[in-house]
């Protein structure tokens, strides 16, 4: 524990928490409002290895003691779990369905999207936001996105996602207004896919 805490201390959070949380939030909001738009955030952060700077920036901006975060088994005892608890004071979600946020690396075995909080018909906002770390957001599979926030259609390239991912996503689409929302990250790059977005490959 003490070693992990030391690492966490070394890996600082935002140097200026108020202003950096604000500017990061605006980038995230922009990404969420305009699906397919890639924004760059967290460049100044040095989170524990295996966690993307953009994913760390996202969690620093929106997670706190009110938001349980789910981590895959491989991360559960990692320096990152300590880092997260140290900087955001967020509880670690015991199961995916009660998580406000979930951090997943494509290298990890990913539970199905349906395993996470879907919200309810009356409170669809009570759904998990998944942060998925992919290899690249500027090359790979070419996707055509449409839906709210997108004028006609827009393109996004993603590499590293398994083939089943998009059939899962289509199933998620059909749950609207319930369903999860996605943040895809690659290094400092971040793109958002809210549940409304239709993806063609």
């Amino acid at each position: 524990m003490t070693n992990a805490l030391k690492d966490a201390d070394l890996a600082a959070g935002f140097a200026d928490p108020v202003m950096q949380a604000q500017s990061t939030f605006r980038l995230i909001l922009d990404a969420m409002s305009r699906p397919g738009t890639t924004v760059s955030c967290g460049a100044e952060l040095t989170p524990p290895a295996s966690v993307h700077a953009a994913a760390a920036a996202f969690l620093l901006t929106v997670a706190d003691f009110e938001t349980p975060v789910w981590l895959p088994a491989s991360q559960a005892d990692s320096g990152f779990a300590t880092w997260l608890k140290f900087h955001c004071s967020c509880p670690i979600a015991p199961t995916p369905d009660c998580a406000a946020f979930a951090l997943i690396d494509i290298a990890d075995e990913m539970p199905s999207m349906a395993a996470f909080g879907q919200g309810t018909e009356e409170y669809p906002d009570r759904a998990t936001t998944l942060i998925i770390q992919v290899d690249h957001l500027d090359r790979g599979q070419n996707l055509a996105l449409s839906g709210p926030g997108i004028k006609d259609k827009t393109a996004l390239s993603v590499s590293g996602l398994p083939a089943t991912f998009w059939s899962d996503w289509r199933a998620n689409n059909t749950l609207f207004p319930c369903g999860v929302d996605l943040m895809l990250t690659a290094g400092t790059q971040l793109a958002a896919l809210p549940r409304t977005v239709k993806v063609e490959i």
């Binding site: 995230i28 906002d125 409304t196």
Partner: peptide
């Protein structure tokens, strides 16, 4: 706000 944007 993020959830509001996700569920127009």
């Amino acid at each position: 706000i993020l959830k509001a944007v996700a569920i127009p």
